[in-house]
Amino acid sequence: MSPEQILLIPKIENGFVLDHIPAGSGVKILNLIRGHQELNDAVLSVGLNYTSRRLGRKDLIKIQSRELPQRFLQHLSLVVPGVTIKRVEKFAIAQKIVLEPPELVDNLLSCPNPGCITNHERCVTTCFHLVRREPMKFRCNHCERWFAMTELENRLKL
């Protein structure tokens, strides 16, 4: 990070840095954070449209929170796969992982097909499988339709 960027977004003592977010996708993640109640009290610092050697432009989000809920991470890996998550402890990076798109999406989404039984039964568990990586496509285990991620983004079960 260059000195002027450090000025833009403050260092955090403890929490998480979501890095390598493709420019424009930061807003999607902010919406996702808002959808997860456990994170409603967390202090956020947001940087949009930084120059990045790898991505050209990128967004960056810092979350001052003790934990990131498992469900939030699963949703994040769906909506913006490839994000790097760094755990910060006492101003230092303690752990770093890259979120991969999930092979199996267990009850995180509702099905976009209005004729799918999962949209008509009470207490039903949905399941989607990753069937294609480029471009990313998921198949509903019930109605067997294939969906692009763009069709699933607004179907998150929060």
Binding site: C111, G115, C116, I117, N141, H142, C143, R145
Partner: peptide, 10 residues
Amino acid sequence: RHPREGAARL
């Protein structure tokens, strides 16, 4: 036999 897709799987 059911009009909804995925009914048999469920």
